[in-house]
Design a protein around this nucleic acid. Structure first.
Lengths: 365, 365
DNA sequence: GGGAGGGTGGAGAGCGCTCTCCACCAGCGT
DNA sequence: ACGCTGGTGGAGAGCGCTCTCCACCCTCCC
């Protein structure tokens, strides 16, 4: 039914609907936006006209006057190479062929990012908002994000920064653009963010290992120039120290499975008697398990292994990993909520929300 | 420098730039869009004015007249539950807590999707275009995609359909909206798509197993209501038959690791003597390896296992998987290219591009 | 019964941009 | 010398929508 009119020419406009309903453009607009009182009979007439004409509205025209797009950018940023902020990580490239963007290809290979998207979309969708994906690993790309926002192509930004000294958060705030970060910015910037209590999470891991009876415990840390890496290490060491273990053998990893393997090899050489390992993320923990098994150590009987994040890798590997859960989806949803709130009340001050990790006990420790 | 003026009030418009440069709005527009001949001196003056005023343009205003947004929707669609079209798959939920959208949470957990995003972005970015993410698993969500497009919020759609009888491709074409699919639509629809020669890929797997000397070969197929699942099975069986193995024990899986485990258990019970397994994707292959090991079978010495996709799981598991590579990034990039082309020349007929898989030999077979 | 007040619809002015005309000014041929 | 072409800048008409006014009418109250 709608087709007759729709195919009769260009897309119907408000004007067309108004004519069909015998009212003015303003009234149609009022009905559509559900604003002010409109006589129920007229409302009905308008709705009829809308469906008869197959009216679809025009986002650009609306945005032009409302100055809102109902789109937000979801930026994966970073000066960086490897890793979501304490998130999962970057398995391997595996991307042969044409696919160029080394950063791009790596970052999205990481299930961590999928979890972020999930959380963001879950919150945005009910609001009729949608995320636009952007990468901002290089300098021109960062400028592009800022100008995209300044052009009003999106209402605000959700920034998942993969590196401590990422300049993007600063650039965005300086330009006065609404944004929320995943993970606390390295230099204090007046901007909202969500983060995880990494120290507490690492503490949980330490206590679990200790409670299990492990006494020769080592750790594979994340990269120490990433706040999450740093904090997880500190939290672990603090708790260990408080429990009477001031010295914890540590090897720095890069949040990748491969780096976890390398680190484990080294740990095994230097401390062959170890009976517990805390890896700062699941991927490294998986790598550690592989190496342990290859060296004839049983997990968890000979060596207990505990990871961090509770990524999908944790539950699918053998043995399933005991790990510290980072509720990425919830955190991402909260990040979206903070942005949406900020959009509704632009001069509300920046807030941050810190999530508490929980221990998920499976078989590896 | 730009800040003085920018913060002096609302965002500068073309008009402001024109005034600053002492020319007309039209001329500024011409310089910015690089259209028609403009006196070099004037061009320079305009560029100056742009940077002095900190001009940023207004996307909505431009879209309103050009009828282009330079955005495309990247839709993950499906009536479905499980799986990217022959793509990787869905490890496990693992998503406790708030995160509701069961579909959403599952689909994006899949690294397959990350690879699609990578490929799409790699192609779109140089064109100054950006992807908007949408899910269309339920009926209202599907309608939302169509209306989003009809409102001109995006120029076209890239649809990654997770299920054969997904109605979205039909809906979109019927509405006359530009779209390209990942994977051939179940019912023939006049629409462009990219796909993989699944049959050939499965054939490669069969020949490799045979060449290796395996003689008691079984297969774990994908879900048979998904074209990719169907075709991989047929391709495998065809080649086996042609090589003198008309009967191939088969158990249907769901493209998940868990289903791979279950299937392998069953295969082991029914055919304890098997010496080779082809799993229709890597995740199931990984699951199969786990079960095989738990039953004391060595891979590949006792049983050779071969997967499909060459997802990141294939290279990080132990042993690294021999698999059939699906060049997801390239395919996604091609999909984007087809859409962009279509946008440039709307009445060009629909085309499809079929990619050839290659065998990646690692350690599992 | 008349004016005040609240509810309801219409008119019309933009939002900031693109793009079609048109005007103007060389430089050319006849 | 005169029109004519081709190149170049300006004017201005929209694109489709929202939203502020304003006009109108129907109570309601004094």
């Amino acid at each position: 039914m709608t087709d007759a009119l729709r195919s009769a020419g260009a897309a119907p406009t408000l004007e067309d609907v108004a004519r069909a309903a015998g009212v003015s453009r303003a009234t149609v607009s009022r009905v559509i936006n559900g604003v002010r009182n409109v006589d129920p009979a007229i409302q009905e007439a308008v709705r009829q006209a809308v469906s008869v004409t197959g009216y679809a509205g025009n986002r650009a025209a609306r945005s032009l006057v409302t100055r809102r797009t109902d789109a937000i950018v979801l930026v994966v940023s970073g000066a960086g190479v490897e890793e979501g902020p304490g998130g999962g990580s970057v398995a391997q490239d595996g991307t042969g062929s044409t696919a160029t963007g080394s950063f791009t290809s790596r970052v999205f290979a990481d299930p961590f990012f999928g979890r972020v998207v999930t959380g963001v979309v879950n919150h945005l969708r009910p609001q009729g908002m949608h995320p636009v994906l952007m990468f901002a690993e290089t300098s021109p790309a960062r400028e592009e994000v800022v100008s995209y926002l300044r052009q009003g192509s999106a209402d605000g930004a959700l920034i998942v920064s993969t590196h401590a000294k990422d300049p993007l958060p600063g650039m965005v705030t300086e330009a006065g653009l609404p944004a929320v970060l995943y993970a606390r910015p390295a230099r204090p910037v007046p901007i909202s963010y969500v983060d995880l209590a990494h120290r507490d999470g690492a503490g949980l891991a330490a206590e679990h290992l200790l409670a299990r009876g492990c006494r020769r415990i080592a750790t594979i840390s994340g990269p120490l120039d990433v706040p999450a890496g740093q904090e997880r290490l500190e939290g672990f060491r603090d708790t260990m120290a408080r429990r009477g273990h001031p010295y914890v053998p540590t090897v720095e990893g890069q949040f990748t499975q491969e780096s976890g393997e390398t680190a484990m090899e080294r740990l095994l050489v230097e401390h062959p008697g170890l009976d517990g390992v805390f890896a700062a993320n699941d991927l490294m923990a998986v790598g550690a398990c592989h190496v342990l098994r290859e060296h004839g150590r049983r997990v968890p009987e000979d060596v207990a292994v505990i990871g961090f994040d509770d990524s999908s890798a944790a539950s699918t590997c053998r043995p399933p990993l005991t790990t510290v859960r980072q509720p990425v989806e919830d955190m991402a949803a909260e990040m979206a909520r903070l942005l949406v709130d900020r959009l509704a009340a632009p001069d509300r001050p920046a807030t941050s929300v810190i999530f508490e990790p929980v221990l998920v006990v499976r078989d590896s420790a």
